[in-house]
Design a protein around this nucleic acid. Structure first.
Length: 184
DNA sequence: CTCCGGATTCGT
DNA sequence: CGAATCCGGAGT
């Protein structure tokens, strides 16, 4: 599989978010390989985005978002679930794309609809925070068939009602009609 | 140090 | 609709 180059992530976050749809997330853990097709994502645009963690500035937690693109930002939410993001844009610009749902490709039995379930099924936790996604055990790759045309839906992001008008921005993207989208 | 609330999920 | 459950960030 063709691993995505760092330059893929070093671009406008909304562009990266939409182009991540259809790509394969690959995780090798304890000798088992799990592969899921990314079908739903959300873009978090940086310090001015009131829904983004980076709106509080550079902190120990958000440092990863300020770092170089192509790294994972993984955090614990509600004391029990993990969420995984991919850092985008040049170093110093704190933006990322949240992965919300996968379509199982191989090695996956558990549900993958929703950011917490996605991480649980893929064995992703905080150990992988700041992990380089151009590594051998955790990466994103272009699928074998690259000539497929996707219809992409744009919707408001989930669970960010506290973010004022930013909550209404259409920054959630998913593959229209895909049965594995968490909230169509 | 204490306190608050969360990019969720599950069960009632 | 409310509980679960723990950590980061902000305030004292």
């Amino acid at each position: 599989m063709r691993k995505l180059p760092r330059a893929f992530y070093d671009r406008d976050t909304r562009t990266v978010a939409q182009e991540l749809l259809g790509k394969y997330l690959v995780r090798v853990h304890r000798g088992r390989q799990r592969v899921g097709r990314i079908v739903e994502v959300e873009a978090y645009l940086g310090p001015h985005d009131r829904a983004a963690h980076s709106c509080r500035g550079l902190t120990p937690r958000t440092a990863v978002m300020f770092g170089p693109p192509g790294h994972a930002y993984v955090y614990l939410i509600y004391g029990m679930h993990h969420c995984m993001n991919i850092v985008t844009e040049p170093e110093g610009q704190a933006a990322a794309v949240l992965l919300r749902a996968l379509e199982p490709v191989s090695g996956l039995k558990a549900r993958t609809q929703g950011p917490g379930l996605l991480c649980k099924a893929m064995q992703i936790d905080r150990i992988l925070n700041s992990h380089d996604l151009l590594s051998e055990n955790f990466f994103v790759a272009a699928p074998p068939n690259t000539d497929e045309v996707l219809r992409i839906a744009r919707r408001p992001r989930i669970g960010v009602d506290y973010a004022g008008h930013w909550a209404r921005r259409l920054l959630r993207y998913y593959i229209r009609g895909n049965p594995y989208v968490s909230r169509p």
